[in-house]
Each structure stands twice: as C-alpha cells, then as structure tokens.
C-alpha cells in the first residue's frame, strides 16, 4: 500500500514537471508568433474578437432582436471596419465584469470594450489603450433645492451607496459632511426620493441616466474628485495591437467619432441636460 502511494506521487510529480516544461516551450513559441504579428493573426481569422457586456445598457446590451448594441459596441464595429474593412466582422464575446481580465489573459478575446475603468491594479495585468470615456463622482439633487457645489452640502445630509468611490471620496476629503449610507443603489435612490437626504453622490454616468427618468431631480454637480478613464484593453505585452488601437483612437478623435457615438447611444438615456463633454474622451487623455 505504502509502496503504491509512493509510486503514485512519483508519477504525479513526473506528469506535473513534464507539463510545466511543455508549457514553457509552448509559451515561447506563442510569444514569438505574437511578436511577428498580432494584427496579421486577426486578419487571417477574419474577425475581431471583442468582449462586451450583454446586460449593461446603454454601454453594452442585447436588444429585443438579439443584436448587440450600445456605446461600446459602436466602437467595436468601427474598429472592425477600419481593421478588416467590414463592421460586421466582430465576434462578440459576452462577458461579466469579473471575467474581463481573465478573458484577455487566456487569449479568448483580442480587445475588451466593456466599460473597463483604468485602475493601477488592472494595469499590472492588462494593457490599456487611450481612453474613450471618463467617469467622476456626481451629485444629484432635487431641482427645488439644487446643490451646485460641495460647500452647499455643509450641514446637510448626503446619501451614498456603501463600497462606492463616492463613499470613499467624501469620507476622506469632506469628513464634515454627514453621510447616510445604503447597501444598494436602488435603496439610495428611493431614499433620495423620500428626501431622507438632501442629495446623493454616485458615479456621474449612473446618475445622468437616473435623473433623466426622474425629471424632478438633476445632476447639478456633475464632476468631482479625480477623473477615472474607461479604455479598451488588450492582452499584456500585445504592443502591436495596442499601438494600432492608440493611433486608431486618436484618428477617431480627430473626426469627433465619440461625440457622435454619444449622441447615438448615451444621449437617449442620459437626457438633453448633459453635455457630451462630461462623459466623452476623444481617444486621448486630456
């Protein structure tokens, strides 16, 4: 029995060692072929594989006819058109927020266009191209007692959702403002409607959409704190595709492509009162 276990362990070790050795040589082969051309590989395949959301309107969603739609999808189509000559040559890989990094690492997609916010932790794992959107903290308040600056919040109650950047920002930078915290966005919005606070802070893109559905409220203070950027991401080390994306994004910026995409996709849900300049970045960090 003991002898058998020893044999089994030995066999397992041998298999694992062999597997590791194998993967090393394969990795080398893979990187060298990537170095020759990541873009040629896409052209050869004939489709650009893009990870998009399927349930986050208006950024990436599937409409009633089963078609992918949204701000991210408009960009995906344009990239395919400029790279492969046809905007239908996109293979949409529908993704979840937590799968975006893994999809790139395991080479399942070429580009992630899924409302992907640039953060230092993510930058260690994937390469981000130039941004095409920005988000900041916004404050929504009733039109009857509109809040236009942080000073106006002193001595008032501000609603936030737990775990959001808005909560952290106000705790750190404005500890004098009294916060009312809720677990879910839905609860926070209900609390604001019931006037259990004087205003509510959250990512501005989210507030724009909500304020548009609730005409008694508006995002009078639309941008606070550091801006976060949203950018396409590629596999770490895929410099060829990254450089192509950057040149492409800058060229699209020249023709104000993202303002047009905003009008087409985001404006209907954000409403007339929001300026595209609060949300859109024309392919180059400002």
């Amino acid at each position: 029995m003991k002898k058998f276990l020893v044999l089994l362990l030995a066999a397992l070790t041998a298999v694992i060692l062999a597997a590791c050795g194998g993967s090393d040589s394969e990795e080398k082969a893979e990187t060298s072929s990537e170095a020759t051309s990541a873009i040629d590989a896409i052209k050869e395949r004939g489709t650009l594989r893009v990870a998009v959301f399927s349930d986050k309107p208006p950024f990436g969603y599937v409409d009633a006819n089963g078609e992918n739609q949204g701000y991210d999808v408009v960009l995906a189509k344009r990239l395919a058109k400029d790279l492969l000559g046809d905007e239908s040559k996109v293979e949409y890989v529908l993704t979840e927020a937590q799968a975006r990094v893994d999809l790139l690492k395991s080479d399942k997609v070429d580009v992630v266009l899924a409302n992907f916010t640039v953060t230092p932790e993510r930058q260690e794992q994937v390469d981000f191209a130039n941004p095409y959107m920005k988000v900041a903290i916004g404050v929504v308040s009733p039109n009857s007692a509109s809040i236009e600056s942080v000073d106006q919040l002193k001595g008032k109650k501000l609603i936030v959702t737990k775990g959001t950047t808005a909560e952290t920002y106000f705790m750190k930078n404005h500890p004098e403002i009294e916060l009312v915290k809720y677990d879910q966005n839905t609860e926070s919005f209900e609390a604001l409607k019931d006037r259990r606070g004087d205003a509510m802070a959250q990512d501005n893109a989210l507030l724009f959409g909500w304020a548009n559905e609730n005409p008694d409220f508006s995002v009078a203070l639309s941008s606070l704190g550091d801006l976060d950027y949203i950018a396409p991401a590629v596999k770490k080390g895929n410099t060829e595709l990254l450089e192509w994306l950057n040149t492409e994004l800058e060229a699209l910026g020249q023709e104000q492509f993202f303002h047009k995409a905003y009008d087409e996709t985001l404006k209907p849900s954000f409403g007339e009162n929001i300026s595209a300049d609060d949300v859109v970045v024309e392919g180059k960090a400002e």
Partner: peptide
C-alpha cells in the same frame, strides 16, 4: 479549464 489552462498551456 476555461481560464487557467489556456493561460498556461496552449490549449484553447
């Protein structure tokens, strides 16, 4: 099998 194996071995 979906994420870890392709990232380490060339098997997609």
């Amino acid at each position: 099998i979906y994420y870890v194996i392709p990232a380490n071995f060339d098997l997609n």
